[in-house]
Design a protein around this nucleic acid. Sequence first.
RNA 1: GCCGCAGUAACUCAGGGGUAGAGUAACUCAUUGGUAAUGAGUAAGUCGGCAGUUCGAUUCUGCCCUGUGGCACCA
Length: 640
Amino acid sequence: MSDKITITFPDGNSKTCKSGINGFEIAEGISKSLAKESIAIKINGEVFDLTRKIENDSKIQIIKKSDEEALHIIRHDCAHVMAEAVQSLFPGTQVTIGPSIENGFYYDFARKDPFTVSDLPKIEKKMHEIINNGEKFTREVWSRSDAIKYFKNKGEEYKVELIKDLNPEEEISIYKQGKWLDLCRGPHMTNTKQIGKGFKLMKVAGAYWRGDSNNAMLTRIYGTAWRNEKELESHLKQIEEAEKRDHRKLGKEMNLFHFQEEAPGAVFWHPKGWSLFQSLINYMRLRQDKEGYLETNTPELLDRSLWETSGHWEKFRENMFTTDPKEEKIFAIKPMNCPGAVEVYKQGLKSYRDLPLRMSEFGKVHRYEPSGALHGLMRVRAFTQDDAHIFCTEDQITSESKNVCELILSIYKDFGFSDVRIKFSDRPERRVGNDTIWDKSEEALKNAMEATGLDYTFNPGEGAFYGPKLEFILRDAIGREWQCGTLQVDLNLPERLGANYVAEDGQKKTPVMLHRALFGSLERFAGILIEHYAGHLPLWLAPTQIVIATITSDSDDYAINVKDKFLRKGINAEIDLRNEKIGYKIREHSTSKIPIILAVGKKEEKDKTVSVRRLGNNNTKTVLVDKILEDIKNEIIEKK
RNA sequence: GCCGCAGUAACUCAGGGGUAGAGUAACUCAUUGGUAAUGAGUAAGUCGGCAGUUCGAUUCUGCCCUGUGGCACCA
């Protein structure tokens, strides 16, 4: 081994150094300020500690605190410091794992009494102490047996288990900061001081050891960590903004819906919320009609025997509500619309000429969701799907799937969702049908996907119990992802339920069934829209589109007159004739998110105008009634 | 389902072993006003439910329900 090595910088320049040099020394050789700013080093694409010796020719990149990669390291360091703080404050607490995550980090602890939020300030204070002490992070490599012995001695059973499960090939590295140490792959910064003050402990939660609900529940502390206090502040601000959009809060403020104890996971839609809901249905109906869908409706209660035949009874039973058996028969409330759809299909003889047959249904389904999963409109036990089942031949799978994909993307665009991700899920463990059928349906869906030319990611083992599926995930105005639409290829249910058609050769064949929902759940989609628009629904979706507010009661007749004009054009207008000041009315209708307020007084009445004020804009404009009527009509049509 | 937290007036929330308080809304009266809160007054609560401790529980304890932050789940 030569004692000289060549290191190459990102800009292509290279330099000869003595073997064994480390990142910090390299940085120092360049400039003092770089050395001060640097926190880690990337060697041949992998990130290491700044003190890691470099012994071969390498491509390197010094990572500074301002670099993107730095956040992960800062957060991971923070997790270690938190664990030290916790163990010093609460002796006897075992450490388990503590990774960095999006926006922060967590650490899972094993402790008889779980932590509560009131413990957080204490822990945070201790963390600041540790950071201020400027403890050095140092890396050591231990033998497996030493490590096991050490942690066993300390009573750290979880760490022992982790070490035992490590790949035998893998080096067992230990990171120390001061007297405290942890099993860790690294990398870390060189000193706790580098973490700074840009962190905050956020919440405590329970979490299963190794994510398995059969295991013990640990107590988890979440924190957020950033490069500095300013970044932390801006992140906290962002959380605050997201909270303001919470559909549960806005739903109450805008009087859209409510929930109550007697119906957990089921929505009480108020008139305004139902108006939004119906707008969505009407819109979808219009779009589907154009694509040749035929609307149907099927029973909510179906006999157990049908669910047994379809396979739901066996594979989906624990999610289904059943009725009190007053008779011999047991009925189940439908958790899916597909068996009903097949029964409609089966009425009358079908020929290959009838295919593809696209049957839609706005079907309300009930699923028993675990109590802890319920969340406003986003996760409910009773919801309405914009469902459809396309019965087709195998040859038609590709073109039908392609149409569905195009329809979905086009529809999402109308709501301002243009960033859509697609996931492909194949056969789950719990499924019906043999592997030949699954091979065939996965192949077919994959081909269809290729035909669309759209990108997708692979999501193994997450398909429906009857077939593989695509999931459409959209990104909302503040960057959150929501899974909405789905497309599933099903070669199982039509056969199980005895659907068939007469083919060109006179033989009876089993059709393929494509299940698809575009909004997915109407309830959920409404919730997403409320958050996406932060309650400022676009005109075409707003339950009350316009409020006409009078300045004084002298203008009452004129206001009523104007309102009628709007109503006649199908625009949802209300009037506010109350004996209140105009400022009061403006404030109230603004807070309830009315898109357009038209103020009318003596002047407007004389000129046949209105004073137009739009939500989120403090300017007003005086416009002829007929003109604004026309503008608003167009805006609704254009879905702006 | 599991761990933590919460449930007080229509809403948002304060309080705390001696049967409760604010702001907003509602209602009444006055006010007819020009673009985000006019003023005064009135009324309003089985303090989530059931047990227990106590002379006394909305307050403490236990169980349950619902919500909530996570975990697990999302077929």
